[in-house]
């Protein structure tokens, strides 16, 4: 996984509530057996008409998200299906950071596994950022509103004096800062897992999970 320490990028705005993963990556693109190449299908049914031509009515139809790497959006982003393809599509499209008042749990997890940092900010902060981006004008590829996200310092700032701090789970922060492969990390716990299995875990699929009894009696 590509580490993420400090990231400066253009902000793309999607001012909608409850954007579900069916919208982020529609089901017709879930049949691939690779992890790569999903960016072209991001928000496909919104970005494109049924015949594959671009939909200029969509918020990004004027190119406002071109070259963006920070997504600013509404509450409960990523709800619905567990499809990690949603995180793959956002990452492949170029997003490294997502800012929203809240996220759905599974999507939130999936982001961290793919080097994408989801940050939950107070709603007032998000509203303030929405206003600032709108005031800055959408612009094309090389213009628009930029932010810097510093994961080490846990702050977000811009050139005009804005500075907000944010919370992040320390373990996830470390994994992202160092680009750690968490399976490798877990395998370092092999002794503990083996010990646990010996004592408690089912030896066969139909066996009871014996630890239940120990703790509940």
């Amino acid at each position: 996984m590509e580490p993420l320490r400090r990231h400066r990028g253009k902000v793309a705005v999607l001012d909608r509530l409850n954007v579900d993963t069916d919208q982020i990556i529609p089901k017709q693109f879930l049949k691939r057996v690779e992890r790569s190449g999903f960016g072209q299908f991001l928000f496909y049914d919104w970005r494109f008409h049924a015949d594959g031509t671009p939909n200029p009515q969509f918020e990004w139809g004027n190119g406002s998200a071109d070259g963006a790497s920070i997504l600013l959006t509404g509450e409960n982003f990523g709800c619905g299906s567990s499809r990690e393809h949603a995180a793959w599509a956002l990452s492949d499209f170029g997003f490294r950071v997502i800012l929203a008042p809240s996220f759905a749990d599974i999507f939130f997890n999936n982001c961290f596994k793919n080097g994408v940092l989801p940050i939950a900010l107070p709603k007032e902060t998000v509203d303030r950022l929405f206003a600032q981006v709108k005031a800055a004008g959408d612009g094309g590829q090389d213009s628009g509103y930029a932010l810097t996200v510093d994961l080490e310092q846990q702050t977000i700032y811009n050139d005009n004096g804005l500075e907000v701090s944010f919370d992040v789970d320390p373990f996830r922060r470390k994994c992202l800062l160092e680009g750690l492969d968490d399976i490798g990390l877990t395998m370092q716990w092999e002794d503990r897992i083996a010990e646990f299995e010996k004592k408690y875990a089912p030896r066969e699929r139909y066996e009871l999970f014996s630890n239940c009894y120990l703790n509940f009696e």
Binding site: S82, E84, A87, I106, N109, K113, N114, D182, I183
Partner: peptide, 8 residues
């Protein structure tokens, strides 16, 4: 869970 967690 997501696919990375499936692998995990």
């Amino acid at each position: 869970i997501g696919t990375s967690e499936v692998e995990h």
